Computed example of a mutant assay.
Amino acid sequence: MMATEGPVHLHLVSDSTGETIHQVARACLVQFEGVKAIEHTWFLVRTAAHVDKVIAGIEAHPGPVLVTLVDPHLYSKLEAAGRALKVPVISVLDPVLGALHHYLGKKARGRPGRQHEMDAAYFSRIEAMQFTLMHDDGQHLHDIDHADIVLVGVSRTSKTPTCLYIANRGFKVANVPLVPGISLPRELTTATHPLIVGLTNDPNRLVQIRRNRLLMLNQGSESDYINLDEVRREVTEARRLFERQGWPVIDVTRRSIEETATEILQIYQDRKDSDIDRD
Rank of each mutant, 00 (worst) to 15 (best):
D136N: 04
A120P: 00
M134K: 14
F131G: 13
F131D: 11
Q130E: 11
H135R: 04
H135L: 08
R125P: 08
F131A: 12
A120S: 15
H116W: 15
D145R: 00
Q115I: 13
A147P: 06
D145G: 04
D148L: 02
M129S: 12
H140G: 00
H135V: 02
D119C: 12
D143I: 03
Y122C: 08
G138Q: 03
H140Y: 08
Q139G: 06
H146A: 09
Q115R: 12
F131R: 09
H116D: 12
H135T: 01
H146P: 00
D136W: 02
I144C: 04
E117A: 14
D145C: 04
D137W: 04
M118D: 14
R125H: 06
Q139I: 01
L133W: 13
S124Y: 02
A147W: 04
I144W: 00
M134D: 15
L141Q: 06
Y122I: 09
F131K: 08
T132C: 12
S124C: 09
L141P: 08
M129D: 11
Q130L: 07
Q130A: 05
D119T: 14
Q130I: 07
F131P: 10
H135N: 03
T132L: 11
L141E: 07
A121I: 10
I144Y: 04
Q130D: 09
L141N: 05
D137S: 09
L133C: 10
A147G: 02
L141M: 14
M129Q: 11
M118H: 14
L141W: 09
E117C: 08
Q139V: 03
H140C: 03
A120C: 07
Q130P: 00
I126R: 06
G138P: 04
H140I: 00
D137K: 07
F123V: 00
H116V: 13
Y122R: 09
D137Y: 11
H135G: 08
M129E: 06
D137V: 10
Q115W: 10
F123H: 00
Q139A: 12
A121F: 15
D148T: 00
E127D: 15
A128V: 13
A147S: 03
A147T: 09
R125K: 14
F131Q: 09
H116L: 15
L141H: 06
M134E: 15
A120H: 08
H140E: 07
T132K: 06
D143C: 05
H140A: 05
A120V: 13
A147E: 04
H135S: 10
H146W: 04
F131H: 13
D145L: 01
F123K: 01
H146N: 07
E127M: 09
A147Y: 06
D136H: 04
T132E: 11
Q115T: 07
F123P: 03
F123C: 01
F131M: 11
Q139N: 07
A147K: 04
I144F: 06
M134I: 05
D148A: 00
L141G: 12
A147V: 05
Q139W: 06
I144M: 02
F131Y: 15
